[in-house]
Design a protein around this nucleic acid. Structure first.
Lengths: 219, 219
DNA sequence: GTCTATAGCCGGATAGAC
DNA sequence: GTCTATCCGGCTATAGAC
């Protein structure tokens, strides 16, 4: 029994190459070369390049979403029917992802890969990613709306959409260090990064609806 | 003299294909086919695929940045030495980009292309994009910091970084309509979209520094 | 399960006629 | 400036020996 078996070696290598050079930019030959396995092994174990991408994704997303839901349930239980503060909801949603990304090189690579795939890959991938997120969004959405009442639901949806952009940027942008002023973003430990995210996003979520939406619902 | 000359036909076709299928995902053969020109014309007029990408970018970015700077100068002039409200700064920064994106199909395509290229393309592209943005960021950065005083400069930089993520997501995500609940983001006219962006971002920018940064500077 | 070999195709780039 | 023809290499995927 080798230290890591062939499928796992392939997943690790694919994750790294997809993150560093994009999915389209990474050939299966490069993946097998990096993994130290034979070219045909990918097709034997995964079937196709697209299926390989799906497998790379699934391996990491599921635990993050489980952790998100667990934290949310704890909050809901503790709130005893009261609305949960936005900051707590955001923390529950973001902390598991931040934990993955800052838990080591592999998590960071995965985040880069996710962003690249989000913009780059085909419809099939996006469907899969949405499906993975759906269960989580369906639980968080109503709680968020409740905490932000009377903010119109439309605004909650738009701001949730904004949040995904912020999170992709913060967790996945691998160029933080390399750019010069005035783009230099300071290094920070995971707790600070998370706190900054929550602070910024909570303020944005809490903003009163812009005037064009306000006729719809304001107490 | 044809309605549009060959280089322009190539730029238009490349913009569309890069947006729809990514840069790596679009072959030069596909571009020339879509443009109705000969394969060799790309190399004659642009030299290489990478140079073509640069040309597609430059054509649209420059006018947007000029408009941004013009609006900022007007604000600075009218403020007569006073700090400019964040909302006005954000509007000056975002309105020209929003105008491009909502001015027609071509602007929308360009925004998609920009996001894809941001995450996908090589270091060379990102350098070019940063160079284009640098002049603008160097003017807006200090004004933002002044309006947000005493927010630490670090926080301003981080939040500017967040903003780029929000803007990429809002302007470029082409999948707004196609996803089901709870991801459905409502359609909205350009003014509403801009106002929502400004509202959300201004609130985020105005948030007090998170506690870990607060020892640095708070009045 | 792992390998070699190869089918079959498409990629970017260029040479050179017109 | 525009075209054809072609170089040369890389690509995904599969067949079939071991």
């Amino acid at each position: 029994m080798p230290a890591t078996d062939t499928p796992e070696r392939i997943l690790d290598a694919a994750e790294r190459l997809f993150a560093e050079r994009g999915v389209d930019g990474s050939s299966l030959r490069a993946v097998t070369r990096a993994a130290g396995v034979n070219l045909a092994a990918i097709h034997y174990h995964f079937g196709s390049k697209e299926a390989l991408l799906g497998a790379v994704m699934a391996r990491r997303i599921e635990p993050v979403n489980q952790a998100r839901l667990k934290r949310l349930e704890e909050l809901v239980g503790a709130a005893q029917g009261e609305a949960i503060p936005v900051e707590a909801l955001l923390d529950a949603f973001l902390a598991p992802a931040m934990r993955l990304v800052t838990s080591g090189e592999r998590g960071q690579l995965f985040a880069q890969m996710l962003s690249r795939a989000y913009w780059e890959a085909g419809e099939a991938f996006r469907e899969a990613a949405m499906t993975q997120l759906r269960e989580v969004a369906e639980r968080f959405g109503p709680e968020l709306a409740r905490s932000l009442a009377p903010l119109p639901l439309e605004e909650v949806a738009v701001r949730f959409h904004y949040m995904t952009g912020v999170v992709l940027q913060e967790l996945a942008d691998p160029y933080r260090e390399r750019r010069g002023p005035p783009f230099t973003v300071p290094e920070a430990d995971p707790e600070t990064r998370l706190e900054r995210l929550v602070t910024f996003l909570a303020a944005g979520f809490r903003a009163p609806a812009s005037s064009r939406s306000r006729e719809e619902a304001t107490s």
